[in-house]
């Protein structure tokens, strides 16, 4: 298409003055402008290009879960670690699945999550060097104080079955996180497929999960916010729950069931896969986490007097 030619018969007034841009002489572009303009340009260039002095070079990136960040654990232990070693730990808080993915791409040095099977596969696939168990916390089933489904004090299996039977609203993370996998495992153990029975949507004919089971595809905090707003049940790690402020009518419905324990592990990214990994600094962080000092720091973190995480680096099979 030859736009310029096509225009000519219509707009002769313009035809004669179209600038020819065969060559684009950038150099003299500002020759005729005032000094003020050049100053402005130089100023803008400066802002754009002069980044502040590169932050602490002695730093590592740790991909971790929203539960460790939202509960405030890192805010407690990282300053202690930094004071001792001078190493800055930059935490990217994501769901466990996303954290492992970030790490696989080589964008973090250490991964600190809670999904043992996935972590072990991560190491077996050569992405990680070795998984160290660090600590556990436990999951709690959160629900409205009025407990419309009547699950308070029951074991988790019975509680889930009751929720399903009464079709009480249940908020699922639905984001491939460690908590999400734990939730799905608990449904499975209870012999329930929360997505059944499928209900065809009137307007699309597509089948969706029962309206009582709602996947939000977001973090723990968002799931708790949703549960508070909808007076629904949800599965949360205890740490996030304790630190959570917008509780509304929510309370713990089920806790203490051994099936609800939640093991955290830490793994150094394999430098053979990603040579830029800061393996020495990363290993230093891992060594500290599993050391007596690190374990004590974890045990010391409390909210309202309640301990959130229970160190068990030495425990066999953790």
């Amino acid at each position: 298409m030859r736009t310029a030619d096509a225009h000519t018969p219509l707009m002769p007034a313009k035809a004669g003055i179209q600038p020819s841009f065969v060559s684009w002489p950038w150099v003299p572009a500002f020759a005729g402008t005032s000094g003020r303009r050049c100053t402005l340009l130089a100023f803008m260039l400066c802002i754009a290009l002069c980044a502040p002095a590169r932050a602490q070079d002695k730093s590592i990136v740790v991909a971790s879960t929203t539960s460790t960040q939202d509960s405030g654990l890192f805010g407690h232990i990282l300053p202690i670690f930094k004071a001792k070693t001078g190493i800055d730990v930059k935490v990217i808080a994501q769901g466990t699945g996303q954290a492992l993915d970030t790490t696989k791409r080589g964008d973090a040095d250490v991964v600190f999550v809670h999904a043992k099977a996935q972590e072990e596969r991560f190491v077996a696939d050569g992405f990680g060097v070795k998984r160290y168990p660090v600590m556990y916390n436990d999951f709690v089933l959160i629900g409205p104080q009025s407990d419309p489904a009547g699950v308070k004090g029951k074991d988790i299996e019975t509680a889930l079955k009751t929720i399903k039977a009464k079709a009480a609203p249940f908020i699922s993370r639905g984001d491939r996180s460690g908590t999400h996998s734990a939730e799905l495992a608990l449904w499975k153990a209870a012999g329930i497929d929360p997505h059944a029975p499928p209900i065809p949507q009137a307007h699309t004919g597509r089948e969706v999960a029962g309206p009582w089971y709602r996947e939000i595809g977001q973090g723990m905090g968002a799931a708790l916010n949703t549960a508070a707003a909808m007076n629904g049940y949800t599965l949360s790690d205890r740490g996030t729950w304790l630190a959570f402020k917008n509780r509304g009518e929510l309370d713990i419905a089920v806790e203490g069931d051994r099936r609800m324990f939640n093991q955290y592990g830490v793994t150094l990214v394999n430098p053979e896969k990603h040579p830029h990994v800061r393996k020495d600094l990363g290993q230093q962080f891992i060594d500290w986490l599993v050391s007596a000092e690190g374990q004590r720091a974890i045990a010391d973190y409390r909210i309202n007097g309640q301990q959130l995480f229970f160190p068990n680096a030495g425990a066999p099979g953790a």
Binding site: V61, T66, Q69, I92, G221, A222, A228
Partner: peptide, 24 residues
């Protein structure tokens, strides 16, 4: 940015974080 505390946390990511912590 990754919303890293003290390094890449901006106003908007801090707001998102506090919202997810339920500190509305």
């Amino acid at each position: 940015g990754g919303n890293i505390d003290g390094f890449t946390r901006t106003m908007t990511t801090a707001i998102a974080l506090e919202t997810s912590k339920g500190d509305l």
